[in-house]
Write a protein that binds this DNA or RNA. Sequence first.
DNA 1: TCTACGTTTCAAGAGTTCTATAAGTATCAT
DNA 2: ATGATACTTATAGAACTCTTGAAACGTAGA
Lengths: 105, 105
Amino acid sequence: MEKNAALPIFEALSSGIRLDVFRLLVRVGPAGMVAGELSAALDVPPTNLSFHLKTLTHAGLVSAEQEGRFQRYRANMALMRELIAYLTEECCTGMPELCGVDACA
Amino acid sequence: MEKNAALPIFEALSSGIRLDVFRLLVRVGPAGMVAGELSAALDVPPTNLSFHLKTLTHAGLVSAEQEGRFQRYRANMALMRELIAYLTEECCTGMPELCGVDACA
DNA sequence: TCTACGTTTCAAGAGTTCTATAAGTATCAT
DNA sequence: ATGATACTTATAGAACTCTTGAAACGTAGA
């Protein structure tokens, strides 16, 4: 991953609402959630949530799929994987043991 | 790591300058760099850099040590490790294999 | 003590992001 | 078609972040 790709991801995760959205979407897994469900679950007005979902989608952290008149959102695990790899490689000088990463333990 | 701890870290990394500072500090390792060196290396005015260093320090990503009239900054690897663990646990539902983390490969 | 140096703090301005209300688009049921 | 539902976009104001220049602070050396 390039710095130019990592930056918008950090920007996207640097809001409490967006971090909540993403964590929730990760937790529900591949089923994802529809915008209205997210709005109710997190108690964020739909119009505001839409704004933040756009940021998350733009960063690629979340994908949107139309489902009738609903809009289903899902967390993008692949990108999260890439981000973790970026932090491990780029930010740990390519030496995972330097950061004590024990993701495989 | 708690969400309340992760959020300021994402905020801190969501600026190009701060991400550059952090990556550079990681690269130079335990030696760290003094403010003036960082300013010259990244071509950021001292006063602006100081502003960003404060954000990074506040988030805990960087530590500052006085050295005569210099201020030496170092990357906080331990926190980066915690962040990676947070992303792996919290954001990958505690199932690293779900994210395909291969930091140990 | 005086001056120079490295860095931070302060204050002001421009630019961005956030939130809310209102209006718009698309889908479904009748 | 009509009306209701689900969601997004537009717009505007408040709040925040960023950048800069000037001033202040602390340390070091003459």
